[in-house]
Simulated scan of single mutants.
Amino acid sequence: MSVAVCSLKWDEATAPTQKITYDADGYHLVRFPYTADCESYDPWGMHEPASGGTLASKYPDARSGLIWPSHAGWGVVSALVFWEADDDALEYRARFVRDPLRLTPDGYDSTATTDMAPTRGGQYRSYMWQMFVTPGVPIGFKVSARGAGDVKLATPITLAEFKLAIHTDVLTPV
């Protein structure tokens, strides 16, 4: 079975700190640089600055948070995020989203939303989900740190990874 892979990484040491800003859905779209300096792997060109617009995207604009599937198939998405310790945070959430910026007629489609209570110290979480993916419909990884009364906090993240593995030979019954 053939697999097309895109693996993105961001950390404080290799790219400027991400300012946590929340979209209308109450989540921050995690951004990734367009360089291989962060252990990124993208031989299929699924994280290209030209994708999704007339002008090239530049990290850390919102489009730098997108993976554009190169093939149709069964996608396995995974992500990792580290948050700094925040005594005000009562909940951490994450989700995978098809078309998080509403750039296609398909529109915003979130899936695999997860929420967790904090543990002591920093928060270190990994996530995985599987879904069909299609070229032309980007995928993003969104996070949120929330305090009392569902207040969205600007809790900094210190590391993030986002990966897509597309199984291109999905069988159908005959």
Rank of each mutant, 00 (worst) to 15 (best):
R125W: 08
D150Q: 15
I67S: 09
M116T: 09
F141M: 10
M116A: 12
R63K: 15
G122N: 11
G121S: 07
Y34D: 05
A145I: 02
P118S: 09
R98H: 14
K142N: 06
L103D: 07
G107N: 12
T111G: 03
S70G: 15
S64G: 08
L66R: 03
T54P: 03
M131C: 01
L66N: 05
F96M: 10
S110A: 15
W44M: 11
A89E: 01
L55S: 12
K58N: 09
S78T: 15
A62Y: 04
G45E: 08
E91M: 14
E84I: 00
K142A: 14
A148G: 00
V143A: 02
G73Y: 03
F82G: 00
G147A: 03
A79W: 03
D106P: 00
G45T: 10
D42G: 13
A89G: 04
R125F: 14
P138C: 06
R98W: 05
V81D: 07
K58P: 00
G136Q: 06
D150S: 14
P60L: 02
T54L: 14
P156R: 08
A117T: 11
V143N: 08
R31K: 15
R120H: 03
A112L: 01
V137C: 04
D109F: 03
Y108H: 15
M131R: 08
G65A: 12
P60C: 03
D106F: 07
G149R: 10
S78F: 03
V76K: 04
S144I: 00
P100D: 04
F32K: 07
L153Q: 11
P135W: 05
D86G: 09
W129N: 15
A85Q: 13
L153W: 00
G122V: 03
S126E: 14
V151M: 06
L55F: 06
K58R: 15
P60I: 03
Y59K: 07
V97T: 13
L55G: 00
I67R: 05
L80N: 10
L103C: 00
R146V: 12
A85H: 13
M46C: 13
Y41S: 14
R146W: 02
V143S: 04
E39I: 01
W129Q: 12
T155F: 03
A79F: 05
G122F: 03
S64R: 12
S144M: 06
V151D: 01
S64H: 12
S40A: 15
Y124V: 15
P33I: 08
V137T: 15
Y108M: 09
Q130I: 05
R63W: 07
V133K: 10
P105H: 08
T155N: 07
L80W: 02
G122M: 02
R98Y: 01
P135M: 06
R98E: 05
P118W: 07
G140P: 01
P43I: 13
I67F: 04
P33Y: 09
E91H: 02
D99N: 11
G73Q: 04
Y124E: 13
S57G: 11
A117N: 05
T155G: 04
T111A: 05
Y59P: 07
D88V: 00
Y41H: 13
S78L: 05
W68L: 07
S78Y: 01
S144C: 12
K58C: 01
R120A: 12
P100M: 08
S57L: 04
R125N: 12
L66F: 08
D86S: 12
M46I: 10
S57C: 11
Y92A: 06
I67G: 07
V137N: 12
